[in-house]
Nucleic acid binder design. Structure first.
Lengths: 207, 207
DNA sequence: TCGTTGCTTTACCATTTGGTAAAATTTAGA
DNA sequence: TCTAAATTTTACCAAATGGTAAAGCAACGA
């Protein structure tokens, strides 16, 4: 009947695929796609290399699986941006959420950044199919808020870029910030700073 | 007498080292350190691989040379931040300068970003020796401006982070922005947006 | 308890990669 | 022009890397 039988994965399968993806995240985010090796991933997962390849078809498949899963988590907070909420608070909440994710999931942020840096050769489809439509939708929501006078006159697209860049900076450039801030915890003032910055930017002038 | 005789490089040496570094910038920024190969660099430079290695001691030396040279150019605009100038205009000018660099030298920006992403394993010394002292000095300048009431109350370090992240985003995440903006030129509105954002942020409230 | 399926290991292999030795060639200066 | 130094080419190589074949082992339902 059904050519494609999904066949729920066994306990061993679930566990090992998880082990592999966890190890792969560490290796890919640290060494980049080109610098990562199956041996390093296998070692990290506590499996042999051929055993790895029993669960995934190859290096690329592991990498793409990781990116796809990650992209979903990554877009979640943007999806939640609610047209019916208070504009300034909705956006500030998005900033907070995004910063928390960067601070808590730096490896994921770095993996994504690394892929985009190299021209997104392996996830361009995801970007155009999933990210772009969502992005366009949310830009329109923001534009509506602006037109209603509830937000300052801002370019919605570039506003989103600024939110992404400032928040992800604390993950992607963590090696730099930790050198520059010394013992000080970056997270400490990051929240306050971004809240201050975006509140000033977003607050409409003649309200 | 002098154990180290600098010996000015020949015309051929100057030309070929230039060719190699240009090709290497392209390859390293596209494929990352781990994904880059000497063969690809040699091909890009129009030289044979052993010929490459006549000019540089190895892959790492090419990469580090590139990063060191880049870091100098990169820090220039920050050095120019003048304590005696008008605070808001000095900082906005820095933002402009930094954005121009990102738009005109995206490969350099990506190379640097890639290195930091991976934990800056090959330039930590540069960061602590060159960048950190400069960073600390400029933070103090900004703090002085704030104390004098010429700037809004801002965390100087995080202000600089925000300037870096928002400007470099247009280079490092160019693959993403070009998908999201479609045919529209990112540079077009980027300048206006960042000017607006940072002017609002920096302007002291009770002046 | 038997056999089928799922999982793991051992033993490989072709290619790529960073790098070298040394001969051959070009260039620059006397 | 001649020669010494600088540059380039040819021919390699050892290690690493992504991946495969097939045998061995474990799990599990009938």
């Amino acid at each position: 009947m059904n050519d494609i039988l999904p066949k729920k994965p066994s306990r061993i399968q679930t566990r090992n695929r998880r082990l592999i993806l966890d190890a792969a995240l560490e290796v890919f985010s640290r060494d980049g796609y080109g610098g990562a090796t199956l041996d390093a991933i296998a070692k990290g997962a506590g499996l042999s290399k051929p055993n790895l390849l029993y669960y995934f078809d190859g290096k690329t498949e592991i990498y793409v699986t990781l990116l796809s899963q990650l992209l979903e988590t990554w877009l979640d907070p943007l999806i939640e941006l609610d047209a019916k909420g208070d504009p300034v608070e909705e956006l500030l909440n998005y900033v907070r959420h995004k910063l928390d994710m960067a601070l808590e999931l730096p490896l994921e942020s770095k993996l994504f950044a690394g892929e985009i840096l190299q021209g997104a050769p392996r996830i361009t489809a995801h970007l155009t199919d999933d990210l772009k439509p969502l992005f366009d939708r949310k830009c329109k929501v923001i534009q509506t808020w602006i037109d209603a006078g509830h937000l300052a006159q801002i370019d919605p697209a570039h506003l989103i870029f600024s939110i992404w860049s400032t928040t992800q900076h604390y993950a992607d450039f963590g090696a730099q910030t930790s050198v520059l801030l010394g013992t000080e915890d970056p997270a400490k003032r990051a929240h306050a700073h971004l809240e201050q910055m975006f509140r000033k930017l977003l607050q409409p002038v003649n309200q």
